[in-house]
Amino acid sequence: MSHDDHVTLESRDLTKTYHSTDPPTQVINGIDMSVRKGEFLVVMGASGSGKSTLLYSISGMDRPTSGNVFLEGRDLTSLSDTEMSRVRLTRMGFIFQQAYFLNNLNIRDNILLPALKAAPKERETAIARVDALLERFGIAHVGRHGITQVSGGQLQRASICRALACEPSILFADEPTGALNSSMTIEVMDALTDVHREGTTLVMVTHDPACAARADRVIYLRDGLLVDGRELGTWSEEQAMQREDALLAWLRKMGF
């Protein structure tokens, strides 16, 4: 197929139906969307609109019921589980609402895990990269701590480090600030904004208009359909308030 060099991720006529319910629930109902290279895209919508399902379908965590997903021109829906896992390991990073970590590993090992798995023969490079990430996000001093010994903000920053450990081309974040207080939210969003500024493509699901205002573009989902989208342009701290107000006005129009 022809491929637009600026598009990193693209979905075509994507649907997802859960057959475990009676009757089956169609959560996504034919979504066409694309994410540009280096773009910070936010997905918004009311609870149950299909935001998270869309995120997990385009990231290859779940198999869509029908339709296709292309990452850098490669059809993810045709890959085997092992191939898809490899794509997630080397090309994608994930940040969740709860900082899910393996509690039998310390913070540093949790971050190191995907890096060592992706390139077991380049362990020294991987270790150096992870240590640099720990320094950059200000959590090097808690690297040997257990996951119950650090704050929620530190843990979510560690999540970002882990998502970046394999230098992915795209980062998926599902409500990354949903479980944090306001100061920790700012801390995490600053970190994500930094990551985006350095060129990483970012797709984030959020309920929080203040967080969404940091995006380049926002799309809005209702009942499994993509109903509208809005370009916000590049974020700057000075214009933060105006962007947020404008976004809120648009969201109200959408019925948010």
């Binding site: 509690n103 039998n104 310390n106 540093r108 090992d109 060592l116 077991p120 701590h145 257990g146 010994q149």
Partner: peptide
């Protein structure tokens, strides 16, 4: 207890076979 345990393990120094 958990912290004590994880402090002792280090994937960085593990040179065995599969990480899994």
């Amino acid at each position: 207890r958990q912290a004590r345990r994880v402090r002792k393990t280090s994937l960085a120094s593990y040179r065995g076979g599969s990480i899994s």
